[in-house]
Amino acid sequence: MKKPEPEVFGAHSRRTFLKSLGTVAVTAAASRAQSVAAELEKVNGEQTVGPGPVPVTLNVNGKPLKLQLEPRVTLLDALRNYSSLTGAKEGCDRAACGACTVLLDNLPIYACQKLAIEAQGHEITTVEGLAKNGRLTKVQEAFVAKDATMCGYCTPGFVMSLTALLQKNPQPSADEVRHACAGNLCRCGTQPRVLEAALQAAGVAAARTTHTEVMDYA
């Protein structure tokens, strides 16, 4: 039987996706994307748009993503359903689990409770945008080293929350780490190791949260 493989790329189809990118070069600089959005805002002024699809330009990981979206489409749905950026996960769609956490101008937010249309003109960073040239960031490396992933579905959200925390506060205490990722749920139970990973990434002497040892029965 034929081996169907998922498309690496593309929303409803590779073709429609590429079409949706329009004429904006994917390599355009971030500033250009912002100016496009600003232009759009100016032109539209107070004009009412929707409820049908309207042009929306998102600046994601430094690249413009030009889409046609109804105003009701959330940033999370725009990423997951109209681009190949599926790193931000849907866990609840109600701003309650953190799996969809992305950075908006370096602040962590829930992409599921943000309209794509209002995310225009802001710098959006998803988990795919962290590693540069395939090199994991300190936070990502610490997650690997401390086994802070299990099923991994919540992981991108935690990574984003902690990336933002360490930008703001490079040497957080354990309680500050807890405060920063209380909005991220994990069902597998990685929390103790997320905490250790955060402290390791920050180079802070690890507050002891778990301790394990092996003893021989025999």
Partner: peptide, 19 residues
């Protein structure tokens, strides 16, 4: 979520009008 229109208000006077 049902479909809706969207507008950005620029002034305190226009906000209630738009809404």
């Amino acid at each position: 979520m049902k479909a809706f229109e969207y507008a950005t208000a620029r002034s305190l006077d226009s906000a209630p009008q738009l809404a």
